[in-house]
Amino acid sequence: MSAELYDRAIVETAKASAEAQRLSAPDVTVEEDNPLCGDRIALDLAMADGRIAAVGHRTRGCLLTRAAAVVLARRAPGADPAELRSAIASLRDLLEGRNGPPAWPELSMFEPVRAVRSRHDCVLLPFRALEEALDRLEER
């Protein structure tokens, strides 16, 4: 099972996190930590017309966290908050083994993580940051 966590899709996706950039003028920035290991993501969102215009991030973490951050940064632009919350929920469902396919097909690469409960938080860290960012935007 552990070997499946490190298949080509996850490893290659995670590598792309090295190219990630922060936004110079975000509408909201959230920092989120994984207290288990000290991993951290700083996530920036820029909004336009009620949708995500751009995503920036700096992610310090394991392959799973970095791969999840890359998927988020690729798929979030153009989505509205409701679509993003739906994606977050579908990722949680995927990890818990509930419901159908995830909202974003790329999230399927994290299916092998389902069986390794201690690593769920690694995948969820960027999405917890996203959730917090959306909450803050709504509070304004």
Partner: peptide
């Protein structure tokens, strides 16, 4: 290599 990834592969 992140320590968690090391530990996960060692677990194999």
């Amino acid at each position: 290599v992140h320590p968690h990834d090391v530990c996960q592969l060692l677990d194999m």
